Amino acid sequence: MTSAGAGPREEPLPGRDAVPVPGREAVPVLRRAARAEWGALLRTVRSALAASRLRAIPMTLTAVALTLVFQFVQNQDWGYQAVQNIGSVQADEHLWLALLRTPLSLFVPALDLPVWGALAQILVVFGIAEICVGRRLLLAVAYLATLAGTMYARIGIWIGPVSPVGLPDSDKYVTDTGPSAAVVGLAVFVCWRYRAWFTCAAVVVAMVVEVVSIKNNLAGKEHVAAVLAVLVLCGVQELWRSRTGRGTRRVSGSAHPR
């Protein structure tokens, strides 16, 4: 029976009663998670590049150029030994000589790896770090991570292969160069400063998995040593901030002072 005075039946609006598409509900969740993880960092990088373009990363561009120069020179018959003399580090050398060469060893590409990989690592990670934490911290953290790898090589050889954290005696003759230790150290430090905890944990886990399953050699273990050194630095800074009452505030999109 039809009720008296009832109006025409309302037709459903298109899409109003549509069946939800599987997975569509997860998109806003993922977007919010990505914004929480990388939002402040990306805003800092985007605003700096929009305002200054490549002038925002002069130290990074200098590092890229220096790496290219070393790559060209070490591949020449007349230049190989010169590059080794100023930037090649081996664990069988005197410690003072290794310490002198360690800063430049960061910019000497490994001979067995493509140089474009080193250049991409420097441009992306160094560039983000230069904008987000400043040039002084970029230099300090990069050197700390590289130095941690250099010192680990000596400690690992002293421990010997009997321990999982040790190294065989033959590794004392391995040429130890390249930016990879500095890159992973800077990635961890920047993620900590911007509270990108998931990314920070992912980098740490990736370095451990690299040693356990992929590259159980000097290079892989040096990456872990670099990460551990930077994590100690982060912990010390966190403790200092809490004791001085400053706390660690999440960065809201402005670059750190240089």
Rank of each mutant, 00 (worst) to 15 (best):
V224M: 00
V108L: 05
G220N: 04
L186T: 03
F189T: 05
W240H: 03
K172V: 11
A4N: 07
Y143W: 04
L49Q: 10
Y173N: 08
T244F: 00
L138V: 07
L30D: 00
A98I: 02
S252L: 07
D92C: 14
G160D: 15
P257N: 13
P168E: 10
S213M: 11
A110S: 08
T175F: 09
V29S: 04
R16Y: 09
L218E: 10
G166N: 14
S242Q: 03
V19D: 15
L167I: 06
L137Y: 07
A65W: 09
I57M: 15
A98M: 13
F107I: 10
T177G: 04
A142T: 09
L139D: 08
L138E: 12
E130H: 06
T2K: 15
R241T: 10
T2A: 07
Q74I: 01
S88K: 00
R46P: 01
L138P: 03
G134F: 12
W116T: 02
C132A: 14
A202W: 15
A36Q: 14
Y152K: 12
V208T: 05
V115S: 10
Y152H: 04
Y80L: 00
A206V: 12
S163W: 12
A226F: 09
V236R: 05
V27R: 12
L104D: 06
A196F: 00
S254W: 10
R258D: 14
L106D: 13
G220I: 14
F72D: 08
L54P: 02
A181E: 11
W78L: 12
R35V: 15
S3H: 09
V205E: 09
Q71L: 04
L144R: 04
G149L: 00
L68M: 11
A36Y: 01
P114A: 06
V211G: 05
W78C: 06
L111E: 10
G117W: 03
L139Y: 14
F107Q: 07
G156H: 11
L137M: 11
G5M: 14
L66D: 07
S252Q: 15
T67E: 03
M1K: 01
E37Q: 04
Q237G: 14
